[in-house]
Structures are given as structure tokens and as C-alpha cells.
């Protein structure tokens, strides 16, 4: 997938491992070695216990739908989409992130909260952005 006119994130030193991961088709998050908890967004130390003994790990890429809106007023780059779902998903590892839901017709009845999802990646410029689709694959 490509979408050249949508906003392209620009990595910073603390987020570079995340974006390096998405370029390889991997969804990387951080895990604290001291308290064994995962966290997201990228930060130099664990927000739970404060330890800086943290490592990058690869998420299984499975998630559930935590909440969303369906935007009826397109942002720049989204003009061709029709109404689109801006969602927050919860990864199996317990962390949440914003994303778009793809691979399903965007209607409330198709998007029950807690539905199972899986990560896919969309290339924008030099960056790959994580999106989520139904766990069973696209159904349209």
C-alpha cells in the first residue's frame, strides 16, 4: 500500500527503532526489564517504575479495538477515503496506540468495540505507518 499525500511522520532519535521496525514489517514497543511491563510511545525510561533498563521487543501485532471515531471531514491526504476510522487499539501486550482501521467498510455496525485486529503497514515516503485490519483479514 502507498499513500503519498497523507502526513508522513518524521522519526527522532528515541523513536527511530520503532520506525526502523515498521520498515521491516515489525511492530516494536518497549519493555521494562525491571518490572516486566510494556509501554508505548517510545521513551528512554519506564513510565511505570522509572527504570531505564528497557529493551525493544516485537509485538505479536494482535490487538483489539478500544475506541474510535468516524471522521466525516477529511484531513489533508484523506480526501479520497470517504468517512474513515480514527481508532485507538490495544495490543495484546497491553499498550495502546492510535491508528486507522482498514480492510473493512467503515460503518459503526462493522466496528464493534473489542473486535480482534491485526497490524498491517502502509508505506508513506520513506516511512511505514502501522494500520490495523480485522484479524481474519480484509473483508471487503
Amino acid at each position: 500500500m502507498t499513500a503519498s499525500h497523507k502526513p508522513v511522520p518524521k522519526p527522532t532519535p528515541e523513536t527511530q527503532p520503532f520506525w526502523d521496525g515498521t520498515a521491516e514489517g515489525l511492530l516494536r514497543i518497549q519493555r521494562c526489564s525491571a518490572c516486566s511491563r510494556h509501554y508505548f510511545y517510545p521513551r528512554p525510561a519506564c513510565p511505570h517504575c522509572g527504570s531505564d533498563d528497557v529493551t525493544w521487543v516485537t509485538s505479536c501485532g494482535r490487538a483489539t479495538l478500544y475506541s474510535y471515531v468516524i471522521s466525516h471531514r477529511p484531513a489533508p491526504g484523506f480526501e479520497q477515503e470517504g468517512p474513515y476510522a480514527i481508532a485507538v487499539v490495544e495490543l495484546e501486550e497491553g499498550v495502546r496506540m492510535m491508528t486507522n482501521i482498514v480492510g473493512v467498510e467503515i460503518m459503526p455496525e462493522n466496528l464493534p468495540l473489542d473486535m480482534e485486529l491485526r497490524v498491517v503497514f502502509e508505506q508513506r515516503g520513506d516511512v511505514h505507518v502501522p494500520l490495523f485490519e480485522p484479524a481474519g483479514g480484509p473483508n471487503r
Binding site: P7, P9, T15, Y41, P74, A75, I86, M98, V129
Partner: peptide, 11 residues
């Protein structure tokens, strides 16, 4: 926000 929310078409 530019890295983790704006890419998803928030307005």
C-alpha cells in the same frame, strides 16, 4: 503527535 496521531488523519 506528529509521529503518532497526525498520520491517521486527525483534524
Amino acid at each position: 503527535i506528529g509521529q503518532f496521531e497526525l498520520p491517521y488523519g486527525v483534524l
